[in-house]
Design a protein around this nucleic acid. Structure first.
Lengths: 253, 253
DNA sequence: CGGTGTCTTGAATACCATCAAGTCTTGTGG
DNA sequence: CCACAAGACTTGATGGTATTCAAGACACCG
């Protein structure tokens, strides 16, 4: 299931094309659905779905939120993204891989001046909520609010995990953990073939390198050993876990 | 200004000893004060200060929050702490240095099952709010709520910075940045002597190592070069920045 | 006074980065 | 259809950064 770059770049999608997030099968945390429900109970209006707020980013494109776009809270509907920081020397660090259903960053909800740059790994469809709108709705619906706060805590938890990984673990461990974590997150979203343990895997070597704090060449070497020892099969935009126990053992999980 | 281990260990302090956080000069973010104000306007009762909720942890002691203590939100009143994760192989990673005025972790506010282990670097005095109590008060006072959310966003921001540091920067850069960041945070709290650029610095070599993902011996070597090149003077529980510009240059800030 | 804990410094080693050459694929234009 | 260029990946050689091991200095304390 390959995603090809399309011609459109970050344009609003016509309302009739949008399905609404209640129909978004990939949206496991169902943040959009929660907001839709909140709007419903608040306004007694089922039709409020903010369809004009869905946007596309084509693969490899980088979007910087902040300044102009600072009153918007983006939630990924489809595709893979990466929250990235670029250092002064030009090297990059991926803070988080963004999967369907993820809020790009909790900071947008709480902080009007939040900044964040995201790279689209595949084509990405995302929903941009108006910040003030969303806040008002969440404050009116404690249940939806709790969902967003949980997502926030989870985001921080994964950040803390990554800190421990980068600070104290070897290259093989970091990469195995990245794969293992992505597998878990995709499974929760129903995006993992549970019998074959196969999943979409659009990450290039340099993405893995930027996510694990390694060089692309070393990532390549580590993946070679993982492949040769029969732990995973990786290629063609998909990844298959062949030896689940061994992977878990290497990932220390 | 050295902090010496006292005999008491994590015991409630008698109410008459407690000053209340409005008097806590170090509390720059004034979270406690915000809560006190919220309680005041909510209950029309100036005396509500929860004095029985202030506790002491003696230096080097480790406290694990979770399970039994899971309905409590701790805020540091005095002393330095460290939020720590211990890996399966026994190595440690410091996620965050906790200074007076810091909430130990935002997760406690939002997630009833949050876990977190904290090591007291010096003797630490902290205030333990009842979670449900605090939440009720914050929901009633939007202003205080905003303060806590800001603290949450800042906490996440520092975590992201640390990820980039551990993933992509050299030992010297990491240590210089740690010092620089601590200096900034202490300055905001009025805990930095602004003329001499001197500050309390109770971190041992192994604390710096655990915070930067390095080994204690290498920390020692890097600090030697920083000392010999006249950037900082460090010892006796305090640190003095001798060459502010050079430090900032090394820290890339 | 020996014991313990912290720090320092040097030497040997491990891990990973960088450099470089080569393969394979993909896309482009002749 | 083929030649060519560009990009992604692989693999080996070399070197740098940080770890580990080890020994010694120093302060503190019972």
């Amino acid at each position: 299931m390959k995603t090809r770059p399309s011609a459109a770049t970050d344009e609003p999608i016509p309302p009739h094309v949008v399905l609404g997030c209640a129909a978004c099968a990939a949206c496991q945390p169902r943040l959009c659905e929660a907001v839709a429900r909140a709007a419903q109970s608040l306004l007694q209006n089922v039709a409020v779905e903010l369809p004009q707020s869905v946007h596309l980013i084509t693969a490899k494109r980088v979007v910087h939120w902040g300044e102009d776009l600072h009153d918007v809270v983006p939630v990924i509907c489809e595709g893979w993204g990466a929250s990235v920081t670029t250092l002064s020397d030009g090297s990059r660090q991926i803070l988080s891989i963004l999967l369907p259903g993820d809020m790009v960053s909790m900071a947008f909800l709480f902080d009007a001046d939040a900044e964040c740059t995201v790279e689209a790994i595949t084509d990405v469809r995302y929903r941009a909520f108006s910040r003030n709108d969303l806040k008002a709705r969440l404050l009116a619906d404690a249940d939806s609010f709790a969902k967003f706060l949980n997502a926030s805590v989870e985001e921080k938890g994964r950040a803390d995990q990554l800190i421990a990984d980068l600070g104290r673990r070897t290259a093989e461990e970091r990469i195995a953990r990245l794969i293992f974590n992505l597998k878990s997150r995709l499974r929760r979203r129903g995006m993992l073939q549970t019998e074959t343990l196969e999943m979409d895997f659009p990450l290039r070597r340099h993405h893995i390198a930027d996510a694990t704090g390694l060089s692309p060449v070393h990532v390549s070497k580590v993946l070679s050993t993982l492949r040769q020892s029969g732990v995973v099969r990786i290629g063609d935009g998909s990844l298959r876990v062949l030896d689940r126990e061994r992977l878990r053992h290497i990932a220390l999980m």
